[in-house]
Amino acid sequence: MNRTQWAAVTAVVLAVLFAGAATVASAVGDGGGGDGTSDTPTASSADAGFARDMSVHHQQAVEMSFIVRDRTEDEEIRRLAYDVANTQANQRGMMLGWLDLWGLPKLSAGSEPMAWMSGSGGGEHAGHGGADQVGQPAPAEDGVLMPGMASRADLARLGKAGGKQAEIEYLQLMITHHNGGITMAEGCAKLCTVDTERKLAQGMVDAQRSEVDLMVDLLRKRGAEARTD
């Protein structure tokens, strides 16, 4: 088993262990009404929609992080990639665990991604963020399911790059990815009714904004800038 496969197995194990402990402690008895009631979120709720969509969004971040760890020897980038993969694999495990506890499907056939954000005031898909964000998500195309996600061409380019170029590709893609995720998490912080999930979403916003600032600095050290298209 190669290094990437071992890393993937490790992330999955961590996610399952974390989900097993954290979801039971945090989601059982945390009512959907946000006022102490025991209402369980429905399949069409913002709570369920965010958990489903952000799980998919996070999975790609984990994938990109494993790719760059095998494409560079730079310890700063490798540490960043490990932190992103570990954090987002754990969070993904929590969200999938909540869906299990709520008795809801992890995939919703016939439902458009981001439909749960229609009430957030963010417009169609509500995922492109404001004009002041660095690295705006591209329009959905070439396999892009949600704002900020990399296309198939992006992933192929990252997988072929090496050294400094791989570092730049990863940082540019991840800045865009984080900004798309930030907007999604802001939507949940506003629309979700499960208190624990709202807190997780706000934590994502704060952490990913900080990581965007770090990645912008890392790009500048490499003579590059975040993408704006």
Rank of each mutant, 00 (worst) to 15 (best):
T183Y: 12
V84I: 15
M1F: 09
A109H: 05
L219F: 10
G187T: 05
T72R: 05
S65I: 06
K221N: 14
A11R: 12
V56M: 10
V84N: 03
G110P: 11
A131G: 01
V194M: 04
S210P: 10
C192E: 07
A21G: 05
E167K: 11
W6Y: 05
A25H: 03
M54W: 11
L80Q: 06
H128V: 13
G130V: 01
Q88H: 11
V84W: 01
R209N: 11
Q59I: 00
M64C: 01
Q202L: 13
L99Q: 05
G135L: 08
I67Y: 04
G135S: 14
D229P: 10
G119P: 01
H58V: 10
A140L: 09
L218R: 15
G162F: 07
G159S: 05
M117Q: 08
R69D: 02
S111K: 12
A89L: 03
E169I: 01
D132I: 04
Q202M: 13
G34S: 09
Q136A: 13
A25W: 06
A156D: 03
I77Y: 03
R92T: 01
T40R: 15
A21P: 00
G143H: 03
E211R: 10
C192D: 07
E141L: 02
T228Y: 14
D70V: 02
W98D: 07
A115L: 13
G97N: 02
E225I: 08
E211W: 07
S108N: 11
E76T: 15
T23D: 01
A140Y: 00
V28P: 08
M94K: 00
D30W: 13
S108M: 05
A81T: 07
T193W: 08
E75P: 12
G163P: 09
R222Y: 12
Q165M: 07
A189R: 15
V62K: 02
A161S: 13
